[in-house]
Amino acid sequence: MAGSALRRLMAEYKQLTLNPPEGIIAGPVNEENFFEWEALITGPEGTCFEGGIFPAKLIFPPDYPLSPPKMQFICEMFHPNIYADGRVCISILHAPGDDPMGYESSAERWSPVQSVEKILLSVVSMLAEPNDESGANVDAAKMWREDREQFNKIAERLVRNTLGLPPP
């Protein structure tokens, strides 16, 4: 049985539903498969993503929590730390050692101490404070640094997008 991964995912799901963090909903896509989750993340207040509800999916490996899950937004995103296809690139989602460039210290990396909740909270703080040194989306990083106004405009369009509103 892939029992321990499943049991831990169930435990985390229970924890998340009993005691949900502000602005975050997450759970398995269906009860048949606990290794694929969907999450809804609200854009943090006071940032350009404020008010948006961003859907994302999380794919867990069979050896979770020994290996980190993968996270991908399933709505259009424009952010220095999110790839064009929605994949999220933050250090908590990488195991130490899978970074040939050696940029990140292992202190910020994945370990079984981390959890879905911590990942989602880090993603919220990533939305609030992008790391513009990331290579995930160079254009977004450049715009964030040099043309904040334009960046905010794009973010507003994305926010309205997630709410099903036409662009302003």
């Binding site: 933050i90 250090s91 919220v124």
Partner: peptide, 29 residues
């Protein structure tokens, strides 16, 4: 090839126990 592209440097600070945006969320609700 290779995952170099997938793992560029990102240093989003992770504060496991402190929710960075909790206060703003409360003020939101």
């Amino acid at each position: 090839p290779i995952e170099t592209v997938e793992t560029p440097k990102v240093k989003v600070k992770v504060e496991p126990d402190v929710v960075p945006t909790t206060s703003s969320h409360q003020s939101l609700s």
